[in-house]
Structures are given as C-alpha cells and as structure tokens.
Design a protein around this nucleic acid. Structure first.
Length: 479
RNA sequence: CGAGACGUAGCGAAGCUUGGUUAUCGCGUCUGGUUUGGGACCAGAAGAUCAUGGGUUCGAAUCCCAUCGUCUCGACCA
C-alpha cells in the first residue's frame, strides 16, 4: 500500500502513543487551537466547516420528522433548574453559574445551560394546553457548558457545540418511536456522511441520561479499541412534564401529562472522524464532510499551459458542486502531497507537463494511496464516482474493523482479555447493576456501552454472578 | 479532584545540575535567485519582557516560594 510507510514525521505514530497522535493531528491539521480559557478550544475553519456539513444533513433529516429549529436562552435560573430531582443530581456538579449581573449580585443565580430540558419544559408549559398542540418537535443548535475536569479537543470540553431536539407527544408509543426514529437518523448520519459504523442499543439504568426512562445510543469504535458514545436519544417519560407542570386537555376531556423525548449529537463526532479514519500520515476525511474534497497539485507550474488547465479543471469541478482547492503556491509538489495527506483531503489531482501532453490527470486516493490516470475530458464523470467509491472504501474499512473487534465473552477471563486488547466484549448479563459495576472493577474501567436490542443471550447464566442471563450487553473501555 | 511530567521566538527543542558578556539550534516567516512527478537549494533578514507574581543575590532562564496553564494516567461525565 502506497501510504503504508510513514511520510510525516511531525506526527507521533498511532501505535506509539495514540493520545499524542490525536493531539498532533488536531493541531497540525489546523482543526482547532487551544484557547486562553482552560478547557475551551477555538474551532478553526477546517473543523467548523465539517460541523456545518453535519448541520446541513441533520436539518434536512430532522425536518422530515417534523422538527423545526428554535433558539432558547443560554442561562437557566437556578430555581427553575432545581425542579427535576434526578436531573439536578446528574448535572449540578458540573454547572457553571453566573452570580453577578451588571456588578450586582443576582438573587437567583443563572446557570449556563449544560443541556436544555429545563428551558424547553418551561417553554412548553406555556405553549401546550390541548392535544391539538401536540406533538411539539423542536430542535436547537447551540453550545452548552459543563465544567469538566479533564478535557480533550472535540471529545470532552468545558463547552461544546451540539444540537438538542426536545419533543412532546400524547402517547408513550409516539414518544418512544420518536426516540428510535432519531437514533436511526444518527445511525444514517454515520453511514451516509461520516463513513462510521456504530453499535446501537439501549443504555443500562446506570449509564442512562439523568432524568430519562430510557436512553438509546450509537457507539463508535476508535482505532485504539476504545468506544466513543457518539449520539443519544432519550425517552423521558412524563417526569419532566410533571415536574414542570406541563398539562394538556386530552381527547377525552381530561387533563393529561405529555410524554417527552430529547436527542442530541455534538462536535464530539469530529473526534470520531479523526480517530476512526486517521492514520500515521494524519487525517483521512470521508469525502462527504471533507472541507476540501479534491486538491489540485500542479507540477512544474511555470511550464506552458499547466496552470491554465488546472484553473479550468477547478472551475469545472466547482460548478459541479465539488469542494476543490488549487494549490498554486510556490511550495514543491512533494511538500504539497504530504501536506494534503496530513489534512486528509480524500482525492488528489496531479497535473504536470507529461500528463498535459497526454491529455491526462493523475488521481490519488488518500484512504489507500491508490493511483490512477484519467483522461481530462472524463473527469467530470469520473470524480463524483471516485468520491463515492472512497466513501464506500472508508465505510467498509471501518465496518471490518468494528466487526473484528466485537467478541463474545463467556467467562470473566475472556472478558478481561477482550477489554484489555481493545474493542467490544459481548457478554450475557443478569440485569443487576451490581454485576455491571463489578465488570468495571475487574476489567480496569470497562463499562456497559449498551444492551443489544433483540439479541437473545448466547449463554444461560451471567458469568459474573451465575444467575440467569436475560440480556446481551456490549462492554468496552470508553472515552 | 488524586498521582506524575512539563511551560524558553509562530512550532519543536538546548541551556538550568555548578547563577556571570549580546540566551543557542532546527523548522516556519520575510527578501533575492536557482528549482518543481514524494516534505528542494544558496545568500541575506526579521522574530524572545525565558508562563505569571514574589523572594534570595552585586548579578536569575538557571536557586527558593506561590499562582496560572498544558499533557498523561486514575475517579466523574456527551
């Protein structure tokens, strides 16, 4: 494979130190910059534009499910925040609170939202009075603040960007369907756009969202064998609605409490893109989110016709809606090759005197280094299909990796071995939280990522306690 | 929040043990020229209140104290 040899020595190799590799890539590929404020980062154009592509995809998909975008305040009066008990217990320890305004102490301190269930509930209380007002399906794009103790670019920050959908329905069935439908949207996002496959399922009671009845999740697997929770949807039941006094007159003329959901994905997905696809030469971006999909590298720019032809190709591709960059800087071709490989540009187009004479361009795929020569007249047809091909290559590669890192654990020793190696251990479980927590202890940090839905236990007993197994759980070490 | 490592030019480092001219090197940047199919070469130039604050001293990047920040590993979490 052409890119099997490492060509970029400013990036720590993945297998030497994965954490350092990740940080190197984030900085060298100009995805982010550390800010002056602890735990906060500056999102640079190269990462933010990927976020915008994700936003575009999701807005379209959300709309198909009847969702409208709204925007609510970033601060929550602490008196309001304290209404739902589980919710406060879950979030209070990591809130940032404003206590002064205009130089005067606030009588009711304002919490910078760590999530907006409270604000949406408060809004819905006023907006909903009849079953005719339901369902309510709103989404907001915003940032939230959680005072994290250890932070890493994109994966965990004191502030992160996300979308949060908040909905109300008449029935439990509708609400649960919504939570599942939105999980499907997130799963599709991975498959269609990010080339990332997920393990899907339900969270255990211990791992579910503070205040939820059920949490559904998609879990990705990073190259170092650790899982990354990439998106969650929650069926909140009637708890928030009850606590916040949301009531409506139902079809039978009785006062009813609606059923609520919430769902979200965050800029953490950018971290997943980096850690699922990247290699020792840097980023490898899936073509559909890549800020630059094709980079044109002219060879011997001062030779007659080279630059003109490059510009012509650039215009042609741009008009087709492809994101193209022509690098006509004075750097040498070798430098440009390495640079755009590091930045993960999916496809490189080289054009030199030799190509021009023969009427060809040279095309090189970032994901596997595969090179091919194509006649210039045919690139309009060839390039879109090559980009699709790259997407499929990347998805398949990630899927193979995921499948080869899911193993059944039949006893404690196997469980330890699998989690130590990295990846998911599928284990039959009795359903007791005690056993779940014990797994964490004996495997040095392995947690239940999700319960497989519709999966019948492949063993009769739980290997931890020996009681009857009722569920199949995916355990992994996680970010 | 516990344990460890670190902070010197845009980036990466040396110097600190044993205090002493104008703080050194590589990359990058700028100027001019030669180059261009895998991180080019030559010549010249700019760029640093040595993280911050205090202390010791005739003299501190160097020794002492404190603070802040970053990274790694744990506990907690999207």
């Amino acid at each position: 494979m052409a890119n099997a040899t490492k060509k970029n020595d400013s990036i720590t190799p993945r297998d030497v130190d994965f954490a350092q590799w990740y940080t190197d890539v984030c900085k060298k590929a100009e995805l982010m910059d550390y800010s002056t404020v602890k735990g906060f980062i500056n999102y640079l154009p190269y990462s933010y534009s990927m976020w915008e592509v994700i936003q575009g995809y999701l807005n379209k998909r959300f709309a198909e499910h009847g969702s409208s975008n709204v925007y609510l305040p970033m601060v929550i009066p602490s008196s309001l925040f304290n209404k739902e008990k589980d919710h406060i217990e879950g979030f209070a320890p990591e809130t940032l609170v404003a206590t002064y305004g205009g130089g005067e102490k606030l009588s009711d301190p304002l919490i910078i939202r760590p999530t907006s269930e409270v604000l949406f509930s408060d809004l819905y209380k006023r907006l909903v009075s009849s079953y005719r007002d339901l369902p309510k399906i709103y989404n907001q794009w915003c940032s939230v603040v959680r005072w994290e103790k250890t932070t890493r670019p994109f994966l965990r920050g004191s502030e992160f960007l996300w979308q949060e959908g908040h909905c109300l329905f008449e029935t439990r069935e509708e609400a649960e369907k919504n939570a599942r439908d939105m999980l499907k949207v997130y799963d599709d996002l991975g498959k269609d756009l990010l080339a990332i496959p997920f393990v899907k399922g339900i969270k255990t009671d211990h791992e579910k969202f503070a205040g939820a009845v059920a949490t559904y999740t998609i879990e990705a697997l990073m190259h170092d064998g650790k899982a990354l929770q990439s998106g969650t949807t929650h069926y909140l039941g009637q708890g928030f609605a009850d606590a916040f006094g949301i009531r409506y007159l139902g079809r039978s003329n009785k006062l009813e409490i609606p059923h609520q959901t919430s769902w979200g994905v965050s800029t953490r997905l950018l971290g997943a893109i980096i850690m699922v696809h990247g290699d020792d030469n840097g980023l490898v971006l899936p073509p559909r989110v890549a800020p630059v999909q094709v980079v044109i590298v002219p060879i011997k720019m001062d030779a007659p016709g080279i630059l003109d032809k490059c510009r012509e190709i650039k215009d042609t591709l741009t008009n087709m809606g492809i994101r193209v960059k022509l690098d006509d800087s004075e750097k040498t071709p070798g430098w440009k090759f390495a640079e755009y490989e590091m930045k993960g540009v999916p496809l490189r187009l080289e054009l030199g005197p030799r190509d021009l004479q023969q009427g060809n361009v040279c095309l090189v795929k970032r994901v596997n280094g595969e090179k091919r020569v194509a006649p210039i007249e045919e690139i309009e047809k060839a390039i879109p299909s090559i980009l699709d091909e790259i997407h499929e290559d990347m998805y398949k590669k990630a899927l193979d990796f995921l499948h080869s890192h899911i193993k059944e654990a039949h006893d404690v020793e196997e469980l330890k071995a699998i989690l130590n190696e990295g990846g998911y251990a599928k284990m039959c479980w009795c359903g007791d939280e005690e056993c779940e927590l014990k797994v964490k202890e004996i495997t040095a940090g392995g947690t239940a990522r999700c319960i497989g839905e519709g999966e019948e236990p492949f063993e009769s007993t739980c290997p931890i306690c020996g009681k009857k197994a009722t569920k199949v759980v995916y355990f992994a070490k996680a970010y």
